[in-house]
Amino acid sequence: MGNKAEINPKKELSTGLETVAGDRKKTEALLTVEDLSLSFTQYASGLRQTELKVISNLSIQAYKGEILAIVGSSGSGKSLLAHAILGILPLNAKLDGKMEYDGKKLTQERKKEMRGKEIALIPQAITYLDPLMKISNQVIGSVEKEKESIMKKLQREVFQRYGLKPEVERMLPHELSGGMTRRVLVSTAVISSSKLIIADEPTPGLDDKTLNETLSYFKDMADKGCAVILITHDIEAALKISHKIAVFYAGTVLEVANVEDFKNNGENLRHPYTRALWNALPQNKFQAIKGHQPMQDEVIDGCIFYDRCSKKKAICSRGIPQLKQVNGGVVRCNNAS
């Protein structure tokens, strides 16, 4: 009974999404994540074992030539989603759910093969560079001897494209400026000729000029046919370049909206939280939403947004709302229609 009820809407969902994508490009999703859950086994003081659920029932899809922004507040587990897709989670992590890449199941073995070749990560900070290794070696990565000279040429081209001077090659990470770091990190993905690019918080602390420059790199990649997943807490930056916005809240995606839906008072948006986010922006109503996200160790039966929702009904406190396809997007809310 329960199983059947869960499977059906998903079938609808995937066909639904294809038609949405069909408007833009007649392709299948490059990456499909369905019902992903992630938890960690941890020891608390006195060695009591606890389970920490970081991501639950998360579903997203990334298409070639498109930028999907995953927007949520800092520290809500968005980076772990990137790590889950790449298969670089720590050993005490437990992963559930389905992932498909290019129509085939994405197993841990396949992730190992794919990463760095098909799927690239653009990390968020300078700490992701080896402090003792020259920049050129890090951008090129680990390659066989005979490929080294080709890669070296490629790296020089990429550096030229991004306006990085030749002496940057020989620098160590601590010698880079903020803007240079950003461009070096982007270079590592570009040089790999990956099809799926996951950028994890690439914009914090950047001035307007560097921010726009960085965003243009992602736009560029999407225009060349890559699928780009942009993980960020900055909804404004995301709206500038993305095609779709996935709203991440307390470990799950509440809504995937098209960028065009973000206008006026947000009446086209499907989830109250997305609307609240939109209205919280300074150029809109500048209204902050009350309350805070539930803690990761809180057990919530029902809609995860229940406590803060202004339109909650009795049914919302019982069972997680099903993912629904509404008006060219998807949403997890009982009220949306």
Binding site: I88, L121, P123, T127, Y128, P131, M133, G141, S142
Partner: peptide, 21 residues
């Protein structure tokens, strides 16, 4: 560390990863 995580994300593994980083 973050940089080894990133190296793994770029496909480095095994002995090569240990020696490099």
């Amino acid at each position: 560390s973050d940089y080894v995580l990133f190296a793994k994300a770029r496909g480095e593994k095994g002995l090569d990863l240990i020696l490099r980083h």
